[in-house]
């Protein structure tokens, strides 16, 4: 609570930490659910044109980080800049792939309809989806290798195919920054490859992609950068430098039980007894 006496970051410093060119820069962001802090004091600037894995144990706040960037959950403090501006001004340049479990796959739409949803904002209020929009959606489906399944109802797709449809929906937005929440969760081998190919293609075209990732074994193979997260930012940087045993120990446990304990105390103290 004491903001003044000893360490007050100067105004110019904040500006320095939000370079206009960076696809995503987060300064001092804290997010709390029901007053329980989930992620604390995140400071991060994403590099341009890199594939970044967000890695951390369960409950480390990986999804929360993405949701907070997208303004889906309120931030307790801190700022987020997307290409140097606030998120809602740069919304068109951000593509989002939510977790597959977050929707009802029994919903009466086919794969093509879902992909076309990525264009809705571009189409605008009240205007219908036209043939050229469907054409664009079809191309995106083709890119993820799902063109044959365009007319299938989404519940008839396998998990991997559903994930590809979600990916195509993000592709169709033609964004410069992509945020993906566990795109590799529960997918088959060929989907995993297809997704990796797409991610690499995006990188080739200079796009930045942040991916919440679970599988530690494939991090070095798939990603250039990692962001190790466990309620706090543990480390960030090129995979070869940062993805070390020591850092992983810091992320996944070791002597950090205290952090948990303190978080617990704070919850108990703040949200009643």
């Amino acid at each position: 609570m004491i903001r003044s006496v000893l360490t007050q970051p100067s105004r110019s410093k904040i500006e320095n930490e939000h370079p206009a060119s960076a696809p995503l820069s987060i300064h001092d962001m804290t997010v709390a659910y029901h007053r329980k802090p989930v992620i604390w004091d995140i400071d991060y600037t994403a590099p341009i044109g890199k594939l970044v894995a967000i890695v951390g144990p369960n409950g480390a706040g990986k999804s929360t980080l993405i949701n907070a960037v997208l303004d889906l959950v309120p931030k307790a403090s801190g700022e987020v800049r997307v290409f140097g501006e606030e998120y809602h001004k740069q919304r068109n340049r951000v593509g989002y792939v939510p977790q597959r479990e977050s929707v009802d796959w029994d919903f009466p739409v086919n794969a093509l309809n879902v992909v076309a949803m990525g264009l809705y904002r571009k189409i605008g209020w009240c205007l219908p989806v036209l043939r050229r929009h469907r054409q664009t959606a079809m191309e995106a489906l083709d890119r993820v290798g799902m063109a044959d399944y365009a007319k299938r109802q989404i519940s008839q797709l396998s998990g991997g195919q559903q994930q590809r449809v979600f990916l195509a929906r993000a592709l169709v937005q033609d964004a410069d920054l992509y945020l993906m929440d566990e795109p590799f969760a529960g997918v088959d081998a060929s989907t995993e490859r297809a997704i990796v190919d797409i991610l690499r293609e995006l990188r080739e075209r200079g796009k930045t992609t942040l991916v919440v990732h679970h599988d530690l074994q494939t991090v070095t193979e798939y990603f250039d950068h990692v962001l190790l997260l466990n309620m706090r930012l543990v480390a960030t940087g090129p995979t070869s430098e940062v993805f070390t045993r020591e850092n992983l120990r810091k992320t996944y446990g070791g002597k950090l039980a205290l952090l948990d304990q303190v978080g617990h105390k704070m919850t108990m103290g703040e949200s009643g007894r």
Partner: peptide, 27 residues
């Protein structure tokens, strides 16, 4: 925090200011 996380010194203060209220004698 400084020992376990690579945080710049100016970032340590705020969380500590929050946490100090919750650290009892045992912690």
């Amino acid at each position: 925090m400084a020992k376990h996380f690579d945080l710049p010194a100016d970032h340590l203060h705020e969380s500590a200011a929050l946490v100090e209220h919750f650290l009892g004698a045992d912690l």
